[in-house]
Design a protein around this nucleic acid. Structure first.
Lengths: 249, 249
DNA sequence: CCAAAAGTGTTACTTTTACACCCATGC
DNA sequence: GCATGGGTGTAAAAGTAACACTTTTGG
């Protein structure tokens, strides 16, 4: 059961993180399964009085994934009254997830600031559950388990924000391993955008941005012709990120 | 001096509104001048415990502008520690703006949710100052007076968000009078984007979206050739808004 | 009659789309 | 040797950018 020092937190405020990963051609999000019930939640938490919002998100992510230096972006703040289910605190207590003392804290109206994060799936060795959860797992965004409160809406809004981001900025550096094939990069784009793209046109366009480096290496050991391996040219990538060019897909 | 019932507010939370208007080829924002000092602030306020964030913003705007049904969009939440100037509460008390009893309330760490609004300049007959301000005026975004706390940063971020919005959605319905000339619409785009556009190409492109209706009327009484007056085709405009087409300028 | 803004069309260029063939590899 | 995905080129279409002349009006 969670024992927390609520006095150290900013009242009424929470953060929630939608951590995106990419694996087997699926866009995944990291979710926590609450102990003893089939209800899942986004990693997140309360905001320490002496901590920037962003830092609160970074710290949460470090605990869950072991990763530092994660790509993070604030995308929306959820603050409707309706999101505060009056039965929720009681639910948590009944299930033995939090102590009865915490009723008042959890019974507040919370406004939550939503962040999304992009991480390389394979670098998250073993996602770490929190005090009130028994599992931390990747779930496909297209096949989400039952989520707590309005967390489903938060995931959807994050996905939408990510899609939009794709039109402005290069994406991939934070989601793919160091080296990857053109097809893998394309699959990432197709997955995020939920659409199909022409192989040849995709290649031409993405190369035209000058953010890829040909490693002169090939992925071997797989069936068929060995595909070339690319890396991001990090400095060009970052320049393109800042310029924020219009890259309509 | 402001007397407020802090008990009815969500602690730690505030909203700030960047109200954009367009007048004499300038992008303006509505600002409040604090009584007795040359410090200006964004319209905003605290969030009533029983009010949605959005509703809190709407209500603030109604009080200041007299307008209901304002175009409103949440664009960022400002939550760094650094934004809470420890001298600020004392400053307000010293200047006689708030009573000493309110020190603790104003001395909290506040996280503020930023909204921007688009309104038709001429419809705001007489902007209304608040309890701690003596004036409410339009100021050019390119020539802002000294602003309270991080309000300058908030304005800048809102302008950036508005610029970005322009690439996704038609804009103008909320900023221009019912009828307007092509040049006025172009001036609005140029002002928001801070760039020059080719007259002929602009006309062709904006007409191609099918969101304008030719009123068959002309602006008379001005020098030179009488320009045609257009209106937005509201249903087409809204359709385009929802579709969110890529309209790179 | 002239200065100033309004209105209109064409051409070159760039970007996007659609599509078909050969290549290399593991099985 | 063949099925499968990898790699390449080209032509048509659409969209964008650059640019010049005529029209109308108030002064």
């Amino acid at each position: 059961m969670a024992e927390i020092d609520t006095a150290s937190f900013v009242p009424s405020l929470a953060i929630d993180c939608v951590v995106f990963g990419f694996h087997e051609n699926e866009l995944k999000v990291l979710l926590l399964k609450l102990t003893g019930v089939d209800v899942w939640a986004l990693p997140g938490g309360f905001v320490d009085k002496n901590k920037d919002l962003e830092k609160a998100a970074i710290d949460t992510l470090e605990v869950r994934t072991g990763l530092t230096d994660i790509f993070l972006r604030q995308f929306h703040t959820f603050g409707s009254i309706a999101r505060n289910d009056p039965n929720h605190p009681k639910f948590l207590i009944d299930k033995g997830l939090i102590s009865e003392d915490l009723f008042d804290w959890f019974n507040q109206r919370f406004v939550t600031i939503g962040f999304y994060a992009l991480v390389e799936y394979s670098q998250v060795k073993e996602p770490v559950p929190g005090p009130i959860s028994e599992a931390c797992e990747w779930c496909s965004v297209n096949d989400l388990p039952p989520l707590m409160l309005d967390h489903q809406e938060i995931v959807e809004k994050a996905h939408k924000a990510l899609k939009r981001e794709l039109s402005y900025q290069p994406i991939g550096l934070n989601l793919l391993p160091n080296q990857f094939t053109m097809s893998e990069l394309q699959a990432l784009y197709e997955t995020i955008l939920e659409t199909q793209l022409d192989r040849r046109n995709f290649r031409r366009k993405i190369l035209s941005y000058g953010i890829l480096k040909d490693t002169k290496k090939f992925r071997t050991g797989v069936a068929h012709k060995a595909p070339a391996l690319y890396e991001f040219d990090v400095s060009a990538y970052k320049k393109a990120s800042q310029a924020g060019l219009n890259m309509g897909w």
